[in-house]
């Protein structure tokens, strides 16, 4: 296969995943949330159990007027949704789906790349918050910045623990080094990573920056139409990215009960959807944290646990080696 063709195939694959997986997760959220609340959820769009609801939503968003507030900083305001979306697209590029380079772009230090790129998403929050010229947006943005800055630390520390255990920063390398018993001794890191990841993508119960009952819609208050759809899409891609990272780092990625070599992609997808289900489940079950509880959880629980896990991992590594 010539190089350019391979490149095209990989890029098309990643873009397809970028467009399809969030829709699947979003639809699953609609239905799962509805049934957890004793409802049916969308039933009409597309005929069978409303499967085309999100596509219809997309069409609706495209038709809506694109409003930019008069007082807003136009350039920054318009750029923010793109800045929110692109990091997740880049992150999807390096997450392995299966063995033998079944990945958008194999990268030697993929873990660092993903963490760095996901961290850039904060800038989009601040940009949209400030440029909207709206006090609710600004409040949401400040909350978002404080939250994302804080939770980046446990996220990176937990990821560092598993990287230390695997002895590599490459995501496929980590999956290859993973053994089932890691589920046990990396469990605290997994919990910390998952919770911090939830906070990073601002999902309930960590959605203080958008808290619709307090701040209208936080930093997204002034957005309409396609730009708002971009933010929503970013949220769902964020779920996919965090679920995929949790899968790859802590749940063994493509390692399944049998046939890893040719069924690996299936195991990865199943695990990603299971973790996504848990993310949706948490959203339905728990109320939003208060701002001070949020910071308390981060600095007094997650960071110490992550540091303890680092010490444990280092100890076990030294004992084995």
């Amino acid at each position: 296969m010539p190089v350019w063709l391979e490149l095209v195939v990989r890029v098309v694959g990643v873009v397809a995943a970028f467009l399809v997986l969030p829709l699947v997760v979003g639809q699953a959220e609609h239905k799962v949330m509805a049934h957890m609340q004793g409802r049916l959820g969308p039933m009409y769009a597309g005929g069978f159990h409303g499967w085309a609801q999100l596509i219809a939503d997309g069409v609706k968003f495209v038709q809506k007027e694109d409003v930019t507030p008069r007082e807003a900083d136009r350039a920054v305001f318009r750029l923010a949704p793109v800045v929110a979306l692109v990091p997740y697209l880049l992150a999807l590029l390096v997450i392995p789906l299966g063995p033998n380079d079944l990945v958008g772009q194999p990268l030697d230090i993929g873990l660092f790349f993903v963490l760095a790129v996901v961290g850039v998403g904060v800038v989009a929050v601040l940009m949209s918050a400030w440029a909207s010229a709206n006090k609710y947006s600004l409040l949401g943005g400040l909350r978002g910045a404080a939250q994302l800055l804080g939770y980046e630390l446990p996220l990176v520390l937990a990821a560092a623990s598993v990287a230390m255990a695997a002895g590599t920063l490459s995501l496929p390398g980590i999956v290859e080094a993973w053994r089932p018993w890691w589920l046990l001794w990396q469990a605290p890191a997994m919990l910390v990573f998952f919770v911090a990841g939830l906070a990073e993508i601002r999902r309930p119960p960590f959605d203080m920056p958008v808290a619709d009952s307090e701040l209208v819609f936080g930093y997204m208050t002034e957005y309409t139409g396609l730009r708002f759809a971009f933010f929503l899409l970013a949220e769902y891609v964020g779920i996919v990215v965090i679920a995929a990272l949790t899968t790859v780092l802590f749940l063994g990625g493509w390692q399944g009960p049998f046939g890893d070599a040719y069924l690996g992609w299936l195991w990865t997808l199943i695990k990603v959807f299971l973790v996504s289900f848990v993310i949706i489940w948490l959203r339905v079950s728990y109320p939003r944290l208060r701002e001070d509880q949020l910071q308390r959880l981060c600095w007094l629980v997650l960071v110490p646990v992550a540091l303890g896990q680092l010490v444990l991992t280092a100890g076990v590594r030294l004992a084995i080696a």
Partner: peptide, 28 residues
């Protein structure tokens, strides 16, 4: 490169922007 992105773009500049927004930075 990635550490630069993670630390400077993801954290330092965000902290800076956070501080600026806490002041009365005008739009425009």
């Amino acid at each position: 490169a990635w550490v630069q992105l993670l630390i400077y773009v993801g954290a330092v500049v965000v902290l800076l922007l956070f501080a600026v927004m806490l002041t009365r930075a005008p739009i425009g």
